[in-house]
Computed example of a mutant assay.
Amino acid sequence: MSSSFRTASPLLLAILSVLWVSPSLATQEVRVGAAHFPPYTVRPESGADTGLLPELVDALNALQTDYKFVLVPTSIPRRFGDFKQARVDMAIFENPDWGWKDIPHTNVDMGLEDAEIFVAQQEPDRQQNYFDDLKGKRLALFSGYHYEFANFNADPKFLAQNFNATLTYSHDSNLLMVLRGRADIALVTRSYLFDYLLRNEKVAGQLLVSQRTDQIYHHYALIRPQAPITGEAFGKLLQGLRDNGQMLKIFDPYKIAVVPVSAPGTASVPQVAK
């Protein structure tokens, strides 16, 4: 073996070592909170990778190598504490009005819109005006959701006392309550109802779906201040998925609208009394 080769070998090995290691060192893990919110996230605590959030995370990871997005199971009530205590870096399919106003974060407009709609049992004389007044009607609601008709107050006692509400953790259960006459109206995410009717075609004629919406879900990603990714960087990744058609491919089948976005990375900091 020549002396020049022996001299070059350590240098060559060092270069190859850097090239081999650097991609893994450059990849930063971003922990995404996954709370049961069908059809976006379905029972993440069970370990099943089902729902739109796992699809979105897979698309984000396939798009680039700077960040690795991983799902961390949480729950609707627990997600605030997990976010504040840095167990998760990001909450997706959120809205700043849903209990986040006092928690520092950065908003990223995802450019996605869904809706919360009213569903009742179909009866011969029942028309759309049935949904105009909720007083005296038994409501079936999803526990932990923030509804506009209740001024976004998700407290179970408040909803039960003021709106005769029964709260569950299942849209299916709420719709069954309506079909069996145990509730007058259920509030259901439009995307979930569309999926439910595809899976249960026989009951479509038994349900009256409101033209009235309780609220339009304009979805945001909320990023904690010390997260490994910035709002601007995440906004660019979402734009990449819009450009390559993945956003439309993932969300359009559920009738979730892909709409124009506002400027990414809007900071939201709680106001402190002086």
Rank of each mutant, 00 (worst) to 15 (best):
G99E: 06
I76W: 03
D82V: 01
P156K: 06
A14Y: 02
L71N: 13
S262Y: 12
S143E: 14
R138E: 14
I185S: 09
G231I: 04
F69P: 05
D214M: 06
L112F: 01
A204G: 12
L237Q: 15
N61A: 05
P264V: 05
N200Q: 11
V30C: 09
A233Q: 11
L193N: 05
A233T: 08
A221F: 00
Y217D: 13
D132Q: 13
L139P: 01
V259F: 13
R126K: 09
V108H: 01
L63V: 00
F118K: 10
D125A: 01
N129K: 08
W20C: 14
I229Q: 02
A140H: 13
M1E: 04
L167S: 14
T213S: 06
V30M: 08
H105D: 07
A150K: 08
P23T: 05
G99L: 15
S262A: 06
A204K: 15
A8G: 04
V203L: 08
D97V: 14
L52R: 08
Q85S: 14
R87N: 15
D132I: 12
P44F: 00
S262R: 14
F131H: 15
P77H: 02
Y192N: 06
I216T: 15
P77W: 08
L159I: 04
P260R: 02
A233C: 00
W100S: 11
M177I: 04
S22N: 10
V88N: 10
N200I: 07
F69D: 01
R126N: 11
V178K: 03
A120K: 09
A267K: 15
R190V: 01
P253S: 02
D125C: 00
P73D: 13
P253D: 03
S268L: 03
R182Q: 15
R242A: 12
N162A: 05
P253K: 05
N95Y: 04
A263P: 03
A154T: 12
G240P: 15
L238K: 14
L193M: 03
E29Q: 13
R212F: 06
P96F: 07
D58K: 05
P264E: 10
R180A: 09
V108D: 02
E45D: 14
G51H: 06
